[in-house]
Design a protein around this nucleic acid. Structure first.
Lengths: 214, 214
DNA sequence: CACGATACCGAACATGATGTTCGGTAAGTT
DNA sequence: AACTTACCGAACATCATGTTCGGTATCGTG
C-alpha cells in the first residue's frame, strides 16, 4: 500500500507554496493563512500534516537534504569505481544553483525571518556534512566545530553575496568561500584588525580588561 | 535639562528585565507581558518607549555597542600615546566576559529565538568592526565580507562553545577563534571535506552537476 | 516650595494569528 | 462497488499585540 496520493499532493502543494511565498516576503511575515491560500489547502488539513509553520519549513528543507545526500552518494560511487567522471564541486554547485533560481536570492534578503530561515538551512547543511566527514580527525580543531565553521563560512558568503553583491559571479563567490575557509583571512585584514583591537596579550595577565556586565 | 529620571529608570528596568528573562527562556518565548511583569512597568508605558520587543532588544544591545566602542577608543588612545599599557585583546575579553556571566551562556542555548538574538548581536559586532577597520584594504577579499566573516567566525565559536563545550576554557576558545580566522581550516579537515564533496572542477564545464529546483 | 509639565499606570478595546473540533463531501484504495 | 481515509470549511476558544484615555504620581524649574 503506497502512500495515499492525496497526502502527497497536499504536502508538496504546501512545500511549494511556502517556497513560493518565501521568494518575496520575509519568512515570518508569512502567516499560515497565506500558505493555505497559496496552496489551496484547508486549514484543518494543514494542521493534520504539520504542527506549525516552522514545522513545515523544517520538513520542506528535508527535501533539500535528501537531494544533497543523493548527489553526494552518486559522486562518491562514481569516483570510487575509478570512473573518470567530472568531480562534483559541492559548494560551487550550490552557488550556481542559487544564482540560477532567483527564489532563494530574495529569500535571504529579508529582515528578521531571515535569521530563522538561515539557521534552519544551516542546520541542514551541517547535518549533511556531519555524516559526510567520516574521520574523527582532529589537529586542534574539534570535529563539530569544523563542521559549523564550514557551514557558517558558506552561509556568510551566500548571505553577503545575495544581499548586496549580486554582480559577482557564482564562481567568484565560490572562490571567496574557499579562500576564507582554507587560507583564512588575508594578512592585510588581520593586521588592520589587530591595529584596532590590540594584539594577543602576552599570555600573562588576563585581568583588568574585562567588559562589565551588560 | 537632563533626561527625566523616570524615563531613565523605566528604560533600564526594561533592559534589565529582558536580559534577565533571556537568561533562562528562549527569546521568542518571551512575551511583552512577561517583560512588563518582570520590570514592573505598565503596558502603555512600554509602548511609549519602544515599538516592539525586537525594538527593545535592539536598543538593549546598543548599550553593549557603546561599551565596546568606548573600550576600544580607550585602548587606541593609550597605545597611541606610546604608553606601555597592556594590549587589549578584544576577542579574548569577550570570551572571558561570557564565561564570567552565566547570563549569556544560556541566552545562546535556546532554540529559535536563538537565531534572531544571534543576528542582532552579530549586527552590533559588525557595526563596531565597521567603523574600526579603517583602510579599504582589499587583497581579493572585500571589506564588508571580511567584517562579516570575522563576526561569523566569532559567533560560531561562541555558539558552539556555550552550547556544548562549556568545559573548554575561554583562552582556548579564543585560540580556536584566531586559528580559524587567520589560518583557516586545518589541512586535515580540508582533505576530508574534499574527499566527500569532490574537488574543484577543472575550471571548464560547470554543467551537469547542478542541483535541481527545490 | 509651589506650579506646570510630563511620565506612568491600568483597564478596556480592537485586531489578528494560532490551533482545534466536527460533520459533511470527495477522492483514493482494494 | 464498498470501504476507508483525506480533505474541506466554518465555527470557536485562546492568546499576544498594540492603542487609547483619564487619573495619579513624580519630576524639573522658577
Amino acid at each position: 500500500m503506497a502512500i495515499d496520493r492525496r497526502v502527497a499532493r497536499t504536502r508538496t502543494a504546501l512545500y511549494d507554496a511556502l517556497v513560493r511565498l518565501i521568494r518575496d516576503r520575509d519568512y515570518d511575515a508569512i502567516s499560515v493563512e497565506d500558505i493555505l491560500r497559496e496552496a489551496n489547502v484547508g486549514r484543518s488539513t494543514f494542521y493534520a500534516h504539520f504542527t506549525s509553520k516552522d514545522d513545515l519549513l523544517k520538513n520542506s528543507l528535508e527535501r533539500l537534504k535528501t537531494l544533497l545526500v543523493a548527489t553526494r552518494d552518486q559522486h562518491r560511487l562514481a569516483t570510487q569505481e575509478g570512473a573518470q567522471t567530472e568531480a562534483w564541486d559541492a559548494s560551487r554547485a550550490l552557488f550556481e544553483h542559487v544564482h540560477e533560481y532567483t527564489d532563494i536570492q530574495l529569500a535571504l534578503a529579508g529582515g528578521r525571518g531571515d535569521a530563522v530561515l538561515g539557521e534552519a538551512l544551516s542546520e541542514v547543511l551541517a547535518d549533511v556534512l556531519r555524516d559526510s566527514l567520516p574521520a574523527q580527525t582532529v589537529e586542534g580543531v574539534p570535529r563539530e566545530l569544523a563542521i559549523r565553521h564550514i557551514v557558517a563560512t558558506f552561509y556568510t558568503i551566500l548571505h553577503w553575496w545575495v544581499r548586496g553583491r549580486r554582480d559577482i559571479a557564482p564562481v567568484e563567490a565560490d572562490r571567496l568561500f574557499k579562500t576564507l575557509l582554507v587560507d583564512g583571512l588575508p594578512p592585510a585584514w588581520r593586521d588592520a584588525f589587530v591595529a584596532s583591537f590590540g594584539e594577543p596579550a602576552n599570555d600573562s595577565a588576563a585581568d583588568g580588561n574585562r567588559t562589565t556586565r551588560n
